[in-house]
Design a protein around this nucleic acid. Structure first.
Ligand SMILES: NC(=O)c1ccc[n+]([C@@H]2O[C@H](COP(=O)([O-])OP(=O)(O)OC[C@H]3O[C@@H](n4cnc5c(N)ncnc54)[C@H](O)[C@@H]3O)[C@@H](O)[C@H]2O)c1
Ligand SMILES: NC(=O)c1ccc[n+]([C@@H]2O[C@H](COP(=O)([O-])OP(=O)(O)OC[C@H]3O[C@@H](n4cnc5c(N)ncnc54)[C@H](O)[C@@H]3O)[C@@H](O)[C@H]2O)c1
Lengths: 244, 244
DNA sequence: ATGTCTTTGTGAACGCGTGCACAAAGATTG
DNA sequence: CAATCTTTGTGCACGCGTTCACAAAGACAT
């Protein structure tokens, strides 16, 4: 397939073809009217614009469950990323091979970063260590961080941080799941719509109705802040679940 | 700290206080003017709206590097998610304990889903198996999927899919990283601005200038599609890096 | 060479989230 | 009880990304 049309690409990606064309137009006019885009050329141009034609050395800090899995993952090198070093604070880990590469101690972090010209770091340490690790990475020259620890890192201007929080991903799914269940219940019975703008009621009040509805884990007990509660919602107050 | 103002919360979260108040207002009027929000009550209301007051059983399919790490991760239960089962297609894995729980074979997938009332599934299988696994999950009653495999799942309406693609996260960082390097180079020398809207040139043309700039991994050779290339860009065509 | 047909590139309109600014609410003080 | 002060809740305007719609470009057939 030497060429593709914006329509074909858009269908494959599940987006609007106009949006796709406009996006491409920011990279220049690489298409041929009446024909489409030369696949090979387009791929190269996008790769180049995204920086994928370069080799990016990355370090992974925190070689535990997740860090080890990342180190073993082959998908990174396929996109031009090279794991330059694995770093852990545990002396017992030092020298031990993970994914065919010896784990190095945090003491050498700065040296490793500068010697390999690393500008992208991956943090897979416990949450408590993440901020400190990020500071050392940044001081050593790292300017982009992929953070798996469930903490908001505070970093200076010019440093990019992307946070991957798997719990939040699940929470988002659960939110929509709950809403689906609420809609089903509303459609079946006569319960009020569970949509957000409605004051309250719905969903949590009668969740048992829908198909695979989970059991209530936290029932609202009558608690201390009861005074404030009675005022607004019929719901009881509760031993909060949210803070992790 | 019994109460918080929207201003305090906004500062902590790094967002605009008006946005925060408006968001909260969709949940109802839970604040007290002149005082702020009752922390305990607010946390409960948000938890409830997000579905965190319920217990959500989830299954993890594909207990390899990543799946095992997920199974061992304690952060899920802290947010109301319970790993109901670990499922893998490898007969050698069946019965083997991972994170204190026996891995079960894919043959029993449907039974596991229905018996536990699971509506959220996590896919950590190789990319090639993901679509098929998703179809089985959905047929068994799952309506929300967290997908770690680098594939676009095609699912029926009513099913939510969230995709976590770590390579893309790194690509995004690399993109900004490259842009930073380009800006530095432009500031130092006299190179044109490397911003996207500019036709081309910049960044990839002279990446060697900035601090920790990586070495070029893929240089554009003179190739077959040369005809098409010469027309638009000064760049050569290339053995594409992007497709993984 | 002329005409037709396909597909790009983009101006313009639309919709939505964000942020401003302020009236209203309620607490607190005199 | 009145005055003052703090902070919420929200109408409104702005800006940006998305989508529509179409003229222009180019391939291909006649
Ligand atoms: N495992 C998962 O699936 C998963 C999912 C989501 C989020 N996370 C998060 O990722 C992080 C790691 O998770 P995990 O399961 O791999 O934990 P883990 O305890 O298995 O691994 C943590 C590793 O970090 C090392 N470490 C601790 N302090 C360090 C420091 N200051 N510098 C360098 N290394 C240090 C430890 O020695 C250990 O090897 C945690 O923050 C966790 O919340 C994990
Ligand atoms: N390891 C990582 O850090 C990482 C990072 C990003 C993405 N991913 C993606 O996550 C997925 C898993 O990665 P991994 O490193 O754990 O791979 P892995 O090969 O270690 O594990 C895959 C597991 O899935 C099982 N499996 C295969 N086909 C199956 C099927 N049809 N049904 C059920 N189980 C099946 C295999 O038996 C194996 O245990 C891959 O798609 C990978 O691209 C992994």
């Amino acid at each position: 397939m030497p060429t593709v049309s914006s329509e074909e690409l858009a269908a494959a990606a599940g987006v609007n073809s106009a949006k796709l064309r406009k996006d491409f137009s920011y990279l220049g006019s690489y298409g041929t009217r009446g024909v489409g885009y030369d696949v090979e050329y387009l791929v190269y141009q996008i790769s180049r614009e995204l920086g994928l034609t370069q080799d990016w050395p990355v370090v992974i800090v925190g070689i535990g469950n997740l860090g080890a899995a990342l180190a073993n993952y082959g998908g990174f090198s396929a996109r031009g990323f090279r794991v330059a070093a694995l770093i852990d604070a545990d002396p017992a880990m030092a020298g031990r091979p993970v994914a065919g590469m010896p784990v190095q101690h945090t003491d050498d972090l700065e040296k490793i970063i500068s010697e390999n010209g690393v500008s992208i770091g991956v943090i897979a340490t416990p949450a408590g260590a993440a901020q400190q690790v990020s500071e050392r990475l940044i001081a050593a020259g790292v300017t982009s961080i992929l953070n798996f620890a469930p903490t908001v890192l505070s970093v200076p201007d010019g440093v990019d941080v992307r946070k991957v929080d798997l719990s939040i991903e699940l929470q988002i799914l659960a939110f929509h799941e709950q809403r689906k269940a609420g809609e089903e219940a509303a459609a079946a019975g006569s319960a009020p719509a569970p949509s957000a703008p409605s004051g309250d009621g719905g969903v949590a009040d009668a969740p048992g109705g829908a198909g695979a509805a989970p059991v209530a884990a936290v029932e609202p007990p009558a608690g201390r802040a009861a005074a404030a509660l009675r005022k607004n919602g019929p719901e009881g107050e509760v031993p909060a679940v949210m803070p992790a």
